[in-house]
């Protein structure tokens, strides 16, 4: 094929098959080991199964079936998006405000907690002498500018 030795093509096919098999095994272990109690675990599983999609396309090509690879290359993203979309609009009570009306209050409470935490952190940070001296410098610059404006008789609005 294309002037390439058939032995090299068989070697490439074998390597691709082994790579796809390894990817499939890794994805299987990942799907089984992921904690089911995590938030958004369905999206994580869809994400992991994307590896299997790519491995499947590689295996299709290695088995000499480019039509399968092309079909699956176009259909796999549609499938993943349709599944995630259906889960979000149908069952996702953690992110969808339509299914869980209390979610906005929860987000607001989280934001308030973050503000309080930020205030606590900013209170704990000591303000050094450098900041005071910087403020003094700023005020002195302002006063010097005002004095120069008064001397020139200009009100600064021009």
């Amino acid at each position: 094929m294309f002037g390439i030795d058939s032995g090299i093509i068989i070697l490439i096919q074998s390597i691709l098959l082994i790579i796809s098999a390894l990817l499939i095994i890794i994805a299987s272990v990942g799907v089984l080991r992921i904690d089911g109690n995590l938030d958004n675990v369905v999206y994580a599983r869809i994400h992991i199964l994307g590896i299997v999609d790519v491995a499947g396309i590689i295996a299709f090509l290695a088995l000499g079936q480019p039509l399968f690879a092309l079909i699956y290359l176009f259909l796999a993203p549609l499938l993943a998006h349709a599944l995630a979309n259906a889960y979000f609009h149908g069952e996702d009570t953690h992110n969808n405000p339509v299914l869980n009306p209390n979610i906005e209050e929860t987000i607001l409470e989280d934001a308030l907690d973050e503000d309080e935490a930020f205030e606590l952190i900013s209170e704990e940070v000591p303000i050094g002498d450098e900041a005071d001296s910087q403020e003094d410098l700023d005020s002195s610059e302002d006063s010097s500018i005002d004095e120069s404006l008064e001397e020139s008789g200009d009100d600064g609005n021009d």
Partner: peptide, 13 residues
């Protein structure tokens, strides 16, 4: 060997 390895991986999957 590659094909059989793929079959085993697919059974696990």
């Amino acid at each position: 060997f590659g094909e059989y390895f793929l079959i085993i991986a697919l059974i696990v999957f």
